[in-house]
Write a protein that binds this DNA or RNA. Structure first.
Lengths: 174, 174
DNA sequence: CACATTTCTTAAACCAGATCAATTTCTTAT
DNA sequence: ATAAGAAATTGATCTGGTTTAAGAAATGTG
């Protein structure tokens, strides 16, 4: 995002694997990724990780319910590459109240795009097979396919790495 | 929602089954439900219906990508009960640009709550069994459980009516 | 009221995707 | 370079949920 409505942000360098927000914590920050890539995820009872979101360069990531409403974070946010992130403090969000109209509208726009993306993902999960979701992923996020380990993509798609491997094999044989 | 930022809305009475927005159309309106209940859904290749959202009294429903960005609607919106809805015209949304700060913030808040709910649903779909999702549904939307046919709830949960029936039988036997 | 239509349930066969376990790449650090 | 761990593939087996089909219960409608 050029022309960021939040100008006075602190930069943070994090190593791959660093946890920026752990489930259950109260989130003080939202993160904008300048370089590298973050993920947010939940763990089920069996300890299996399910990826909610990837955030490569230019993307925001946070636990919105925690960041906006002070709730306990439902997700964990961690770096999957060495990354550089901008910290957007809750107080900055509070300051939205006194933000210029134009910045507020841009903020609103970002939020709306977020909803649109979430809705698309929801529809895919509800109505498509694993193969269809994978095909959508590689066309929607071609650069991420190159970059991310397949097991993370599988987790995002809601399938096991083993099954993704089979899906890919089947696609390759065509 | 009390204190609606959009005051000058037109009311519409619709019979059960009425389609307010069909997939592929350009959505002119977002709908606020005053009475009754709407649904938005997609159909897969097999013609099976998958419910994206229910909108009972007080809820908003629209195809955001169509409403905000003029895209073709991905979902169909229809009444599942005789309903009364408020029409929020695109032009009203455009007028956000000249909206008082306070109204814009309220608008933003609604949008953020929407994201939070979508995220919760996504996490449930990714990490829970059909039974867990049903249990969450009956605690989160107890009034809808009374009111809606089970086959619609099954569609919302991402399972077949037959399997929901089995889940309920299993739960009842405890 | 009776009849039609839709909804809900039950059961058996079936399938997409999971699990478990072993093997083969691919990374990464030393 | 090489060792060691992590990622990816493959095969065998299993399971949560689907499909198909049929009957039972509820709901609407002339």
């Amino acid at each position: 995002m050029t022309n960021n409505p939040f100008q006075d942000l602190k930069t943070l360098q994090v190593k791959k694997g660093t946890v920026l927000l752990a489930k259950g914590q109260h989130s003080r920050y939202a993160y904008q990724v300048v370089k590298g890539c973050l993920k947010s995820y939940v763990e089920d009872e069996a300890g299996k990780e399910h990826i909610v979101q990837f955030a490569p360069e230019g993307w925001y990531i946070s636990d919105m319910n925690s960041f906006f409403n002070g709730a306990e974070a439902a997700v964990t946010i961690a770096a999957i590459e060495d990354s550089e992130v901008l910290l957007m403090d809750r107080s900055l969000h509070e300051r939205a109240k006194s933000m210029p109209q134009e910045d507020l509208l841009q903020y609103l726009k970002i939020t709306q795009n977020n909803i649109i993306a979430l809705n698309k993902r929801l529809i895919l999960l509800l109505s498509s097979t694993a193969q269809e979701r994978y095909l959508d992923f590689i066309t929607t996020y071609p650069s991420l396919v190159q970059r991310l380990p397949l097991k993370l993509i599988a987790s995002y798609l809601g399938i096991t790495p083993e099954f993704l491997s089979r899906v890919r094999k089947k696609l390759a044989s065509k």
